[in-house]
Design a protein around this nucleic acid. Structure first.
Lengths: 413, 413
DNA sequence: GTATACTGCGCCCAACGAGTG
DNA sequence: TCACTCGTTGGGCGCAGTATA
């Protein structure tokens, strides 16, 4: 029965007919606009709806009402604990607010989330939340901003996570401060020679964390060998690969330039995990100018003009006066990869080489030794971003504080 | 301009007016149904659309066309690598198929996904994918089945992941076989005394894995102490908690019944992670009959009639003849929690107590020692589930094979 | 061949009249 | 008469078809 319409789905008409009431009554009974419906009819309608398996067409409702109650979350990857935790927070908040969450992943989009935002916008959600779309080339960047502006003009609400360069309510993390204090803490523990693993400089998170760390070191009178400040992918394999290259370079070819090793010098490529803004589209890998926007004292991967004169031992494990004592990776996922690489090189993380990360994901406490990190309240981040978007006033940029967590991977030295 | 309508968003009307063409022409130009539009007009329309920031209203399109092109994925949790990997696979497949993915999490729903399915259905997606909704009490269970059947009657497509009890295309994992072979492999390595950590028995995955493992042991002539077969949460903390309780019970109170320890005996509660079907609604914790459907040789958490006579040393770490040599947890997340608990007890996982899990998530290779597990192709699972749903024929149940991966956490003994 | 009406998708909302008590 | 409920009708949401001009 009731397969008269195109899709074959049950409509409100069918329910009304089945219940023996009028269309309007059925509508009033089910969505209770003005609940002037007799109890008996109400029950009949509900019963009929249940028997027929009726499900209101939310698209039609959305059109008729002019608004939906979904929140669209756009993340870089699902696979990544960073995003997963944020998404979890958003899901919780959405549930409490009675909103339906729909998520999209920019990871595989050629247009870096721009297209995603476009299609998401077409769904007319009440809120669009963006966690880490990349600060990309100006063209795409401006297009994204315009897209969001148009969405807001249409009554939509926007909140951004972890970027502070657009004119929307933004929840940002104190990357610089956290890394700064971490560096100071590690210096306080007695470490002097550091390596830093970071990502593409156009990813603000990566840039800020690296810069904060270097600034913190400088404050302590420490300037790391530029060859030990390496750009790589912001995921587990990126950390693993860069650390492996550095370790093998230091051991197998003492005096060689680790920054020039083919592994470590590889610009960030595909499968960029974590990376709030590092989701390289397939086919465009490594095609960006890797040296763009580099500040002084930066990544020396490709820089022949390293401050260390050639011949000086800059190895990680050489044991000489220049040997690196600690590796900081700008996120935990990378740091965990680093730890595995260290072990594979026959060394013991923590004892032989200290390792530190950032984010304090759950896994940081499950690796051995437990990972020193900077705690970011990721779930709160998601929840608060949603609140921010829903709020009526424009709070501008809200900065979330973070906390250094010292663990066994960086024992006093 | 063009803020005449309720929402304030730009409509196709605005675009047509702006471009100086008729409404229908603009429609054809933008969605190119039959592209009988002059090149000049086409360009003008596109230009106008871009200038106005027009975004087609997908709800309206869905209504007009009678179909949308989204795939709805319903998972138990985002937080969990198991679901995250599956979601990643689905996202990939959806992207390739030109479908938009929208995901929902049942974790916090009081109705165990039933309500989620209901609302999802209202969105009229082309596909609904369910990864691990719990095999719950018959009422909800039947309601879920009916909901899905109604959805299918309306032309929708369904695929189920990892449950094989409903009449829909299903991708199931050979939980029993994998655990069976793992048990045999561990027995082959010389282990004899095992503990098994599992979840709620109504969760088929947990039940099958545990049963498979026990069957495999039996085949090798091994029957573990029932007190060492413990039910707990299917997440990291569940594994950690249960292992801690067992270890402390074994050490602090030799001869006592570890199954009676308040920690280990706690029925699965909230925050059930991983757990394709274990997402207990808040407020209903521990209210189900915990002993339901228990097969012989099962969990003895609450069983005074343990086969071991009281006084015999059944501790995990006591070192006596009854000391457990290996702990199997029905998933990796739990196993990782177990490893941490072992370490916290002053023991070395792998050397003092072997640990094995199931799923072979990425993190299994980043813990120390690397975790023995059973490899489940989770990403493939997601991708294939989508294909299954989209396929025209009804393939019934497809079973995915798994592979035992022995690593350092279970060295030969 | 190209551009314009018109109808319909499934629903919400408002207004009106008619039927009860 | 009043308060309440119900059915009918019309309009509209934004868009995609299919005829018309």
């Amino acid at each position: 029965m009731s397969d008269h319409n195109r899709t074959g789905a049950v409509t409100l008409h069918d329910v009304a007919r089945e219940a023996g009431v009028s269309y309007a009554t059925a509508s009033r009974a089910l969505n209770g606009s003005d609940r002037n419906v007799r109890a008996e009819n109400l029950a009949r309608v509900q019963e009929a709806a249940g028997r027929l398996g009726y499900s209101p067409h939310v698209s039609a409702q959305a059109i008729a009402r002019g608004s939906s109650n979904t929140v669209a979350l756009i993340v870089g990857a699902v696979d990544d604990p960073y995003f997963a935790s944020i998404a979890d927070g958003v899901a919780e908040g959405a549930y409490q607010a009675g909103l339906t969450l729909t998520a999209a992943v920019t990871d595989r989009s050629p247009d870096m989330g721009l297209q995603i935002v476009r299609t998401m916008r077409g769904r007319r959600p009440r809120v669009i939340l963006i966690a880490g779309s990349r600060v990309d080339d100006d063209g795409v960047y401006a297009a994204l901003a315009e897209e969001l502006a148009a969405y807001r003009r249409g009554g939509g609400r926007v909140a951004l996570l972890s970027r502070n360069d657009l004119d929307f309510p933004t929840l940002t993390v104190d990357h610089h401060g956290g890394a700064f204090r971490l560096a100071q803490a590690l210096a306080g523990l007695g470490y002097r020679r550091f390596a830093v693993l970071h990502g593409d400089d156009r990813i603000r998170m990566s840039y800020d964390r690296r810069q904060g760390f270097l600034d913190g070191l400088r404050q302590a009178g420490i300037v790391p060998d530029p060859r030990h400040v390496v750009a790589t992918d912001l995921n587990r394999d990126g950390g693993h690969r860069a650390a492996t290259a550095l370790l093998s370079a230091g051991r197998d070819r003492p005096g060689s330039d680790p920054g020039r090793s083919p592994e470590a010098a590889t610009p960030p490529g595909r499968n960029a995990s974590h990376s709030p803004e590092a989701t390289n589209p397939p086919g465009r890998n490594a095609s960006h100018s890797p040296e763009a926007t580099n500040p002084p004292g930066r990544n020396a991967s490709h820089s022949p003009e390293a401050t260390n004169p050639p011949g000086r031992n800059a190895s990680l494990s050489g044991g000489g006066s220049g040997a690196v004592e600690a590796i900081f990776a700008v996120n935990d996922v990378m740091a965990i990869g680093v730890m595995t690489a260290v072990r594979e090189a026959g060394l013991v993380p923590g004892r032989d080489i200290a390792v530190a990360g950032f984010d304090d994901i759950d896994a940081a406490r499950d690796v051995t030794p437990m990972l020193t990190s900077v705690r970011v309240p990721l779930r709160d981040l998601g929840r608060r971003a949603l609140e921010l978007a829903l709020a009526d006033d424009f709070p501008g940029i809200v900065e979330v504080q973070v906390e250094v967590v010292l663990r066994e991977s960086t024992p006093p030295r």
